[in-house]
Amino acid sequence: MENFGQAQWYFAFLAIGTALSVSIAALSACIGQGKAAASAFESIARQPSASGDIRSNLIISLALIESIVIYALLVFFLLQGKLPTLETITGA
């Protein structure tokens, strides 16, 4: 721990950011998708004859919400490529 220099701090925070990026995005998008799905099911229950339209619109809006998570996933891939191996960090 005595040689925990600036580079090590950088990589530590990079690792935390890598993990947090996709998990925060997934958390918030799950809430949004849950709300969308819940109201779609309510409206299908109220008006079953419109279920076809509602279902296709639901899938499209879920995909649009999900694309934000996908952007976070791409950022995750980019950041993951910058992470060093354990041997590089410990200098072994």
């Binding site: 995909a63 999900e66 694309s67 998570v69 996908i70 952007y71 996933l73 791409l74």
Partner: peptide, 13 residues
């Protein structure tokens, strides 16, 4: 952009 990233991200993930 969003079409391409969405397709790649979902399937690749």
């Amino acid at each position: 952009l969003s079409l391409a990233f969405r397709l790649f991200g979902n399937v690749g993930g």
